[in-house]
Simulated assay, not measured.
Amino acid sequence: MSTAPSPLVAAVKGPAGPDVLTFAARWRGASGRPLVVVTVYPAPAPLGAGRVDAEWVAAGREEAERTLDSARAALAGTDATFRAVPAASAPRGLHEVLEAAGPGAIAVLGSRDAKGVRRTAPGSTAERLLTGAPGPVVLVPWDHEEDPQPPVRRIAVAFIDTPDGRAALEAARRLAKEVAASVDLVSVLPDTLVRPSLGEPRRFAEEQRRDYEASLQAAARPDERVRLLEGPVVDALADLRPADADLLVCGSRGYGPARRVLLGGVSARLLRSARVPVMVVPRP
């Protein structure tokens, strides 16, 4: 018996809401996943101040409903579900929604305004959710709604032959199958000042390149493309453009609780400057 696909959970609040809805609607159209639009408002405090607390909660609820009304207008004609969720904090509310949605649910969040630059920049909610989320989290660049939105065609994965790199590759393959997209395996030849103490530096660099290329080719399937970039790792990945990929998938760091998102050094810095939506997947 087939099971229903896990949902996209689009978190909307503030100016980044249209960016989130643009990405979520595009992905929902390509994949057929259910779309759940969520906004979180403050829940009553356990020891509230009576009438004052009730009025504060009511005001938060009204603001949440206005946010959802705007989302309904933006997604007119779709069968999305809209939810206002009371919680002690936005990250906690989203975490609970993801837990309830079950394995495979994907959270989609927007970026804060980083001086008008169309790159990813996590706000406080994204930063906290990206530490322990029970499923993949997508961060959409600021002003993403202004970019042309062609069909979803290419998924890139930041690949290195480690458990978290292989987990990212498997996640990218599942997503590509879901939306009928191609997969590009992308590695970066580090721009490092480390040199061998013995031997010829040029030969060392050539051997390093061959090792990286061999690792990519060994991991790739016949219908997948490989790309070996050069330069600082984060800068090279962050400069991938919408023409290069519709989504960049990367892994979590290699320690901590299994099946939870945990930002490593590369993923944390990448999320502060990427030009395309970035998905961080839980560690295996």
Rank of each mutant, 00 (worst) to 15 (best):
G104F: 14
S89Y: 03
P151S: 06
R83T: 07
A114I: 06
G132S: 11
E146F: 10
V140D: 11
A167D: 03
G116F: 08
P163K: 12
P136G: 09
F82T: 08
A76N: 15
R119M: 04
D79H: 05
P148E: 06
L98P: 15
G104H: 15
A90S: 14
A156M: 05
R83P: 14
A156C: 14
P91Y: 01
P148S: 09
A171W: 08
T131V: 01
T125R: 04
A90C: 03
L130C: 02
L98M: 09
V152P: 01
A101D: 11
T131E: 13
A74I: 12
P150C: 03
G102A: 05
R166A: 06
A101I: 12
D113C: 11
T162A: 11
A101N: 15
R154P: 14
A105C: 06
P151L: 04
L98G: 13
A76P: 14
L109W: 13
G116E: 07
W142Y: 13
G132A: 01
H95P: 02
G116W: 05
G132Q: 04
T131L: 06
A84Q: 03
W142M: 10
G165E: 04
A90K: 01
A167H: 14
A87Q: 07
P163R: 13
A107H: 10
E99F: 00
S124V: 08
A74M: 02
R128I: 09
R128K: 15
P151Y: 01
E170F: 06
E96G: 06
P141F: 03
P91D: 03
